[in-house]
């Protein structure tokens, strides 16, 4: 919930920075307290991305990771014209889309179950979400090896989807649940009173209300699944963009190309996330059951 509203307010707030810096009423103490965090985000997040951008337009070099001080669009040309890279990018987005849809649907169901349960059962269901969330994704991926190998599912896309789903599902469930928890059960009863069946009343009444949570769940699941690294690496022979970038960086030492690929991916993901946001937001008001 917080994620959504805050991200949405980013553009509006940026305009007011200047204003607030000049605002006399902002107490100095508050600024002093926020300064380290702002400085940290600038130094460890914002500036590094500018350096990434800079390296993406630098020329390549044979004896260094990139040719310092040079300007070249070679890396972008390389990324944008390579069929191999496009197929890798395509596979990454395909994986992201499948996992996102599954995570949202299952997340909605599980969040609903947590919401409707009480006492010990509720605690156990919440616990089953929080514990995997707090466990390293190496373990979460690795656990599928002994599980899926005997089942004959590995290697293959199904295994990757299942493992990646297990990685993002806890976030999806909690994002939806935290919004759902603020919703009033009476609205569902009212819908049922008006003649809606149980699943339908949930779909008509609950889903639109928890749309902010669904959007967060979708965005997080999508961003992380498109960038999936561990699950496809361990469980499949297909290459995702994350694996490719890792190869470019750590094995081939081709920094400009890795940077350009990262920038392209971020751009494409930004477009997709904006799309998810727009489409789901439209459903927020009235959910039309086809």
């Amino acid at each position: 919930m917080a994620l959504l509203t805050n991200t949405a307010s980013l553009s509006g707030s940026l305009g007011s920075i200047r204003e607030s810096l000049l605002d006399q009423s902002s107490s100095n103490r508050a600024l002093l307290l926020m300064a380290p965090l702002i400085a940290f985000e600038l130094l460890i997040f914002v500036i590094p991305f500018f350096i990434l951008l800079r390296i993406s337009v630098a020329g390549s070099s044979t004896d260094h990771v990139f040719a310092e001080g040079t300007w070249s669009l070679e890396a972008y040309r390389e990324v944008l014209t390579s069929d191999l890279l496009w197929s890798i990018i395509g596979y990454s987005f395909q994986l992201g889309a499948i996992v996102t849809v599954l995570a949202v649907v299952i997340g909605l169901f599980y969040a609903y179950a947590i919401w409707r349960s009480t006492g010990l059962l509720k605690s156990l269901l919440l616990f089953s979400v929080v514990l995997p969330l707090l466990t390293t994704l190496v373990i979460r991926t690795y656990a599928f090896d002994p599980l899926l190998v005997p089942a004959g599912l590995v290697p293959g896309t199904v295994g990757v989807v299942v493992a990646q789903l297990y990685i993002v599902l806890p976030y999806a469930v909690l994002a939806i649940y935290s919004v759902m928890a603020t919703t009033d059960w009476d609205v569902v009863e009212a819908a049922r009173d008006l003649g809606a069946s149980r699943p339908r009343s949930v779909l008509e009444v609950v889903v639109p209300q928890v749309m902010p949570g669904i959007i967060v769940a979708a965005v997080v699941s999508f961003a992380w699944s498109v960038g999936a690294y561990a699950a496809p690496e361990l469980l499949s022979n297909d290459i995702t963009f994350a694996m490719h970038v890792e190869g470019l960086m750590l094995s081939d030492m081709r920094y400009p190309e890795a940077a350009a690929l990262a920038v392209v991916m971020l751009g494409l993901m930004g477009v997709c996330i904006a799309g998810i946001f727009t489409v789901l937001n439209r459903f927020g008001g009235d959910f039309e059951l086809a």
């Binding site: 307010s9 707030s13 965090l37």
Partner: peptide
């Protein structure tokens, strides 16, 4: 804080969570 500088803090702090860790990893490595 009673100014609006604080309102950019929340989104600024949150955005890194939305960037795939691989991209954060290579960005920070560079």
């Amino acid at each position: 804080d009673d100014g609006s500088l604080g309102t950019i803090l929340a989104p600024l702090v949150l955005v890194p969570l939305l960037i795939p860790p691989v991209i954060l990893g290579i960005t920070l490595l560079m």
